[in-house]
Write a protein that binds this DNA or RNA. Structure first.
Length: 491
RNA sequence: GGGAGGGUGGUCUAGCUUGGUAUGAUUCCUGGUUUGGGACCAGGUGGCCGGGGGUUCAAAUCCCCCCUCUCCCA
């Protein structure tokens, strides 16, 4: 855009994403009316219509995919009795500092037992699982729920990224064997790629998190890190191998083919829809506002009639005809309000509507219209009879084009380092570091702390896909390396 | 978690040092003229100055507590 940012009026974004990401994100949230932060409880925000529609579409895609893979939906109460919550010790220890408690009710005062506003639903669900699951014939038992959870976050809250209330899906599954559970973890990772990379156009990579950084109560945690382009990573959905850590205290047992009663092997998976949305708008947006994948846009096509005196009727009639031709296949808006055309262009760009169709007197004479794609600004003149065909073509490739632009070559961001100084330098240069590490079991935790202090990065864990590097020694302590880990700064 | 800075019509903001009638723009509504990248004219609506307490004849302004937001750093 040739237009200088400081000339932009208040309704547009005035901060450059490259120069001031935080300011840019705040303006995007406010001006595109995605969230309203004036609801004055810290960490609790109102998600406005435009964001809600897209988040619901994201939900639907994830839910459909989960059901396709054999999960059934259910709905759980949002309160968990403290006695349930206390059953698994590590889980309690991990979550207790973040729990909101309901301690009083109405006029009867204090409750006999405190009730936790669920921070996650393991301790609610597994109590039920122990009642529902009787035999190996009930397995695998795959369920999910779409809900809100509450965690009293100490860290700085940001709309969508980190709130004290957030919106997610959690899937909870039970298997007869550890291998069955591990297969589920792999399936969850595949699901995550399908949603985040293919639908949301966010590049990700999965790591097995170190022991000290795993989900409270899990055997192992596998988490997606989004590659934000600057060498920084952002944690997105994680899937957890629970083994029998919960099935034992919650008594989730089944009678196996051999007649023996056994504890199930469990997994859980929690993709946060609100955080995924935040990551998507932050990653794809530009200095004109939102950029959205075609399927996730609340409005996919906006028609803007260029009305001139004497010719209003002709143009409006044509615009309405275009609307009628497209409305059954796409979500279309005809913006015939009396704003000036330029003003409409800016505001629908801010909202990230993928296709804009302009129709004016000059087009009418030539029996054509003008299509503009939001994500690259390309302008296409289309003859009237070609309209449906061209729109179909754009709809087909629009998301793929965004994805192509946004997929970062992960390998090119990695720097292999053998010494601490090299790692410090690489992190400073915005790279992700691959290096040897003594252990991602608990005995490696002090080396991880050294990584944070001395290198200024976090140990993200062991890469899940193929491992190519061979490092002889740990970058910190010099002992023989048991694995290759990746170090990065995180959001 | 540590630090810094904010909260005044829907939005942005002046006023606060030195207490005394609430400033401007924009949005919104009405009417009219316009319309190919942020149009214009005229009129109008809209405020418990974040909340509570204190000082004072008098508080947006001074003092205390709380809530909340923004930015930076663990």
């Amino acid at each position: 855009m040739a237009k200088k940012k400081n000339e932009a009026p208040l309704t547009g974004i005035t901060v450059s994403k490259e120069e001031d990401f935080s300011g840019w994100y705040t303006e995007l949230i406010n001006k595109a009316e995605l969230a309203d932060i004036r609801y004055n409880i810290k960490g609790f925000v109102v998600y406005r219509e435009w964001a809600t529609i897209t988040i619901r579409k994201m939900y639907r895609k994830s839910e459909d995919l989960l059901e396709l893979k054999g999960h059934l939906p259910l709905t759980m109460p949002s309160l968990i009795p403290e006695s349930n919550f206390l059953l698994e010790a590590e889980h309690v220890e991990g979550f207790a500092p973040e729990v909101f408690w309901v301690t009083e009710a109405g006029s009867s005062g204090k409750l006999a037992e405190r009730l936790a506003l669920r921070p996650t639903s393991e301790t609610a669900l597994y109590k039920m699982y122990s009642m529902w699951i009787r035999s190996y014939k009930d397995l695998p038992f795959k369920r999910y729920l779409s809900c809100q959870v509450w965690r009293y976050e100490g860290k700085m809250t940001r709309p969508f990224f980190r709130g004290r209330e957030f919106h997610w899906i959690e899937s909870h599954n039970v298997f007869a064997t550890m291998e069955g559970a591990m297969e589920q973890v792999k399936e969850d990772m595949e699901t995550t790629y399908q949603i985040l990379q293919d639908e949301c156009c966010i590049p990700i990579i999965f790591f097995q998190r170190p022991e000290w950084d795993k989900f409270a109560g899990a055997v192992h945690t596998y988490a997606a890190d989004a590659l934000m382009g600057s060498g920084k990573v952002l944690q997105l959905p994680s899937t957890h191998l629970l083994g029998q850590n919960f099935s034992k205290p919650f008594n989730v047992k089944f009678v196996d083919t051999d007649g023996e009663e056994k504890y199930g092997y469990q997994t859980c998976y929690g993709p946060s829809q609100s955080r995924n949305y935040g990551a998507m708008i932050a990653f794809l947006g530009d200095n004109n506002g939102l950029v959205l994948p075609f399927d996730l846009a609340p409005i996919q096509i906006v028609i803007i009639p260029i009305l001139f005196k004497q010719k209003e009727d002709l143009i409006l009639t044509k615009a309405r005809e275009i609307f009628e031709r497209l409305k059954n296949k796409y979500t279309v808006k005809l913006d015939d309000s009396d704003e000036s055309p330029g003003s409409k262009f800016y505001s629908w760009e801010l909202k990230g509507v993928p296709i804009r169709i302009e129709i004016g007197p000059r087009d009418l004479e030539k029996n054509q219209m003008v299509l503009i794609k939001r994500h690259d600004g390309k302008k296409i003149f289309v003859k009237d009879p070609e309209l449906e065909k061209v729109v179909d073509e754009i709809a087909q490739i629009y998301t793929k084009e965004i994805k192509e632009k946004s997929m970062i070559d992960f390998e090119s961001q990695i720097e292999l380092t053998y010494e601490k100084d090299a790692a410090i330098e690489a992190i400073k240069n915005g790279k992700i570091v691959a290096c040897g590490f003594c252990s991602i079991d608990l005995d490696g935790e002090c080396c991880a702390e050294a990584v944070e202090k001395e290198i200024g990065a976090e140990v993200r864990g062991k890469r899940v896909d193929e491992e190519k590097h061979e490092f002889a020694t740990c970058i910190i302590c010099g002992k023989p390396a048991s694995c290759t880990v990746y170090l990065a700064k995180s959001y």
